[in-house]
């Protein structure tokens, strides 16, 4: 099944785009979705502890099961700063 993933702030900068389409096995949870995205974008690891998720524009717990066409968003409360 395919889900849309909207990425904001730090997550958007790491992923390099505001929106991804991810193909997942039926019945996958948000945690499984995030693991898959993190496999592609290892720097997301730094957000893992603080990131919130929404599904179809409502906050959702990480064990939430997804269905095809869901719109997920990665909602980072705060990033690690980048000091130059």
């Amino acid at each position: 099944m395919k889900v849309r993933v909207r990425c904001f702030a730090t997550a958007r900068e790491i992923v390099g785009t505001g929106e991804l389409v991810i193909d997942l096995p039926e019945g996958s949870t948000l945690t499984q979705l995030f693991d898959q995205i993190q496999g592609q974008f290892p720097r997301l690891q730094g957000l893992a502890g603080s990131l919130l998720f929404s599904v179809n524009r409502e906050y959702a717990p990480s064990d939430r099961r997804l269905v095809a066409e869901d719109e997920v968003a990665l909602i980072p409360p705060v990033s690690g700063g980048t000091h130059v």
Binding site: A9, T10, I75, P76, P77, V78, G81, T82, H83
Partner: peptide, 15 residues
């Protein structure tokens, strides 16, 4: 995103 003279940081909901 706060942009300072020597870096930057994103601040989001719940902070």
């Amino acid at each position: 995103k706060e942009v300072w003279i020597d870096g930057e940081e994103w601040v989001g909901p719940g902070t």
